[in-house]
């Protein structure tokens, strides 16, 4: 019982506290790659602290949903943190599988898209429309990519997948694994709103997807929404790290295991974040109506991965 509460607290703290650092580090690396000094990696913490101290402005055309959405987003992210195998392969919500996790994230998308429409501006509507389109098209790929892993581990429980795959040292060379990793990586870029699908740093409303939905938010509401979206990025990278390269995710948490797990996770996240930063710097944003082609390509990879599972039996 005490162990469960500890793990829950640790998961939430790591996800909530680590997410802004991840986003800040990404920004710093991207800045260095284009020849700028860039902000310090802990800049998002300063931004959040400043935002919490501001008085939010709420539009007169909105309903209760607009003010509720930031809190709902944070709640779903914290619940997702409790459900994902972040540091331990027995997370507090031990029953969670990829389906529950994806639908929890869809709760957040649902509320945020509605909040974008609530303000009654064309920007918000456009952001909502594009945002749900990308989310809908990314769903099949996510399901199939993790399905490929679940079939080999014979369980859809995420912790079970981690434990099942941790016993196979040569899995990185398996085509199933590589194809599923590639598919999930592409879909991660789409779901978290990174280049080449969506530019998180753009100022042109016509090029925005996620940003357009949050144009009306200010103060603590904006802080919560930005925080939740950085937690989403951390969640996806953690899933990529722990589901596909599951070494260093202990089942039982003692203090030394916790420390080792945290270090290994940090190392894996650093590699993945560097890959994301390199990709974002090197590639330009895709035209909006080319994004479905990219997602269809990732779906084809995921389908191949699942077919490979069946052919290998």
């Amino acid at each position: 019982m005490i162990g469960d509460v500890t793990i829950a607290v640790v998961h939430v703290v790591i996800m909530a506290a680590g997410a802004p650092l991840l986003v800040g580090a990404l920004r710093t690396v991207k800045a260095r790659l284009v020849g700028r000094r860039g902000p310090v990696p802990w800049q998002p913490y300063r931004d959040l602290r400043k935002l919490f101290a501001k008085t939010p402005v709420v539009s007169t055309t909105t309903s209760w949903l607009f003010r509720a959405t930031p809190y709902v987003l944070m709640s779903t992210m914290i619940t997702a943190a409790l459900a994902a195998p972040v540091l331990s392969s027995r997370p507090p919500l031990a029953f969670a599988g990829i389906i529950l996790l994806m639908y929890l994230l869809l709760v957040g998308t649902f509320f945020l898209a509605l909040a974008g429409l609530d303000a009654g501006s064309a920007f918000g509507g456009m952001g909502s429309s594009r945002g749900v389109a990308v989310a809908a098209l990314a769903e099949p790929t996510v399901m199939l990519a993790v399905l490929a892993l679940s079939l080999r581990a014979n369980t859809t429980n995420l912790g079970g997948v981690v434990e099942g795959l941790a016993h196979e040292p040569l899995l990185a060379a398996n085509p199933v694994h590589l194809l599923a990793f590639a598919a999930f990586f592409i879909v991660m870029l789409a779901e978290t709103g990174r280049l080449p699908v969506d530019n998180p740093a753009t100022h042109l409303e016509l090029t925005m997807i996620h940003e357009a939905m949050v144009l009306e938010y200010s103060g603590r509401h904006l802080a919560l929404v930005e925080w939740a979206s950085s937690m989403k990025l951390l969640l996806f990278l953690t899933l990529l790290a722990n589901l596909f390269f599951p070494w260093g995710v202990p089942a039982v948490l003692g203090p030394s295991a916790l420390l080792l797990g945290a270090l290994v996770l940090a190392a894996k996240l650093a590699v993945l974040a560097l890959a994301v930063a390199l990709l974002e710097t090197a590639m330009a944003k895709l035209r909006l109506f080319r994004v479905p082609e990219l997602l269809a390509g990732s779906f084809a990879l995921a389908l191949l991965s699942v077919t490979a599972v069946f052919l290998q039996r």
Binding site: S63, Y103, L117, A119, A136, E139
Partner: peptide, 26 residues
């Protein structure tokens, strides 16, 4: 499975539209 996953995502989009356009804003 792929069809079901796609349906799930599209249903979210459809009902964001139905509730968002029908009930929200002005």
């Amino acid at each position: 499975i792929a069809a079901l996953a796609l349906t799930g995502g599209l249903a979210v989009a459809c009902f964001v539209k139905a509730y968002g356009i029908g009930f929200l804003a002005l």
